[in-house]
């Protein structure tokens, strides 16, 4: 069985389902915009201050927006019996899970990356810093989806799983937050920021290698 075919079938499937549920599709994006826009109301309109805190704010917004859709990543398929059928497919269940994670990133992570320039302008960020922010988000948000899938799988079918998911996953997001926001700060200070990008890329590779596999194992346990 072609590995890419399995992933492609699942990505396509979940994207079609997301497009039929437009409210779910837009929830993460609107949540990101609202969270990022609420902060200036709290700290005041000082352009210098806003510009300074913008990378951190954008990253926390992205992190929370990703977290918002995670409880639903496997829940619908679990409830309607599809997950059981997916686990019995002759296709690799790990690749099926990877396809679902990729679809989650396309729905929750990519729109956040694409809307960042507009929010960056709002925060008085310069063009190069906006570009750095977009690059770090592009590298970092897949890690959020990948790590988040482990939490979503571990808390599947658990009462109050949403809260537990946040408690499990948020600490694991800390390195991504530090490296992601740190790159913009390094650029602003005139320091070499390549290290941050390498670290984010390393997290991408590690998460890509382990997260779908761990999630698939956790899902099989949940299905028992």
């Amino acid at each position: 069985m072609n590995l890419f075919t399995t992933v492609f079938i699942m990505v396509r499937r979940d994207l079609i389902l997301a497009l039929r549920h437009k409210s779910e599709l837009l929830t993460a994006l609107f949540f990101f915009v609202i969270v990022v826009n609420l902060l200036p109301l709290g700290v005041g309109p000082d352009p210098k201050l806003l510009s300074k805190i913008a990378p951190g704010v954008l990253w926390i917004g992205a992190l929370l927006a990703t977290l918002l859709g995670l409880p639903r990543l496997f829940a619908h398929d679990y409830q309607d019996g599809s997950l059981e059928q997916l686990s019995l497919s002759p296709h690799s269940f790990t690749l099926i899970v990877l396809g679902k994670i990729m679809a989650h990133w396309l729905v929750a992570g990519l729109p956040v990356v694409l809307i960042t320039p507009f929010l960056g302008i709002q925060f008085n960020l310069s063009g190069p810093i906006i570009a750095v922010m977009m690059a770090t988000l592009l590298l970092g948000t897949p890690v959020l989806s990948l790590i988040g899938s482990i939490g979503a799988a571990l808390t599947l079918g658990v009462r109050g799983g949403g809260v537990l998911l946040s408690l499990l996953i948020l600490p694991l997001y800390i390195p991504v937050l530090i490296f992601g926001a740190g790159a913009a700060e390094a650029y602003r200070s005139g320091l070499d920021m390549s290290g941050y990008f390498w670290l984010l890329a390393a997290l991408d590779i590690l998460a890509l290698f382990f997260a779908p596999w761990v999630s698939a194992v956790a899902l099989k346990v949940a299905l028992e």
């Binding site: 309607d80 019996g81 059981e84 059928q85 019995l88």
Partner: peptide, 16 residues
Amino acid sequence: HQDTLYLGHANALKEE
């Protein structure tokens, strides 16, 4: 898995 078809209680259909 290739040789088996299991159909359970749930219909495993996507309503959308």
